[in-house]
Computed example of a mutant assay.
Amino acid sequence: MIISHYLDATYLKTAIQAGITEKENLEKVVALTKEAINYDYKLVMIRSNYITTAKKIISISGAKVLIGTVIDFPCGNASLKQKIQEAEKAIKLGADELDFVVNYNAFKKGNIDMVTEEVTCCIALCLRHHKIAKFIIEAAALSNEEIIVISQLMKQIVLENFGEENAENVFVKSSTGFFKTEREMPNGATFENIMLISKNAKPLKIKAAGGVRDYETALKMIALGADRIGTSSSKEIINKEQHTNQSY
């Protein structure tokens, strides 16, 4: 297993969130993109306004690193029309993969029809443009039962509307990493929720994201069914893998 090929190297903070200038934030994106090229990561996950810069760097290098971006991030409560417009813009800019935040609050309120329409339309858009669609369910906001139900819903939407042949083009993703939990509870991927998602969403792909910061955790997430790891600690994971392999 080459763990770098599982990694979506991630930087999603705005300049305001990072407490730095826009120029400094752009420099972080450029550095991450170059790191992704050097370490052969699967993908670099960035805000859409940085896609053009990252794409140019990757193109010049001749690398095969993909570019991903987030849609309706991090709250997921925009209208379907707004989600589609944002996704279409990202596709035009050159994004290869789109990580949509599902309207998990609507789901929690029982508005399954709204969520079904949203997910169906977003998948259709991505498949039409030969892009990968990922759906962030924000597991930290859900109970175990809700994680099971929404994972099964995602699987049902894909299999009934797009066929099993497209299951590999749709991911269920655990978390934004930006959700604020009470009592300092985990706000990202946990072993338990990845196990639940994997058990109920397969044959769809699974992305563990939020709080995966070390090699051992990444390995266990993969063992539990994760096909991709979203992390801001890609370099640390790779360095530990190399150190571990050299120890044998």
Rank of each mutant, 00 (worst) to 15 (best):
G163D: 05
M114V: 08
A36F: 03
L196K: 04
V172L: 05
T53N: 09
Q85K: 15
Q82S: 15
S151P: 09
K23V: 07
I2C: 04
L12E: 06
E22T: 14
H130D: 14
R213L: 12
K92W: 05
K28T: 09
L93K: 13
G211Q: 10
N200G: 01
L159T: 08
I222G: 04
N187I: 06
E117S: 12
K34I: 05
R47S: 14
I67K: 01
S247K: 15
I150P: 09
M45V: 14
T21G: 05
M1S: 06
L7D: 04
E118Q: 07
C121M: 14
K199W: 00
Y215A: 09
E145M: 10
P74F: 06
I60E: 10
E97G: 09
I137Y: 11
T217C: 02
I60R: 04
Q152C: 05
K205V: 02
A95V: 11
K207S: 13
K202L: 00
L66T: 03
G94C: 08
I67T: 02
E97M: 04
L159R: 02
I229W: 04
K205R: 15
G230N: 12
L12Y: 03
S79M: 08
A223V: 00
K42Q: 05
V30I: 15
S143M: 11
I197H: 10
E168S: 09
T69V: 06
A133T: 05
K134N: 07
Y50F: 15
I197E: 10
E118D: 13
Q17G: 15
I16T: 14
K55E: 11
I194S: 12
K199G: 00
M185S: 15
V172K: 01
E192P: 02
L196D: 00
L224Y: 13
A139E: 04
T14P: 12
D113G: 03
L7N: 05
R47P: 11
S233Q: 05
T217F: 12
G19L: 07
Y248M: 14
D227Q: 02
K180D: 09
A36D: 01
D40G: 00
G110K: 01
E27V: 10
C75R: 14
N25A: 09
A31Y: 12
M221I: 10
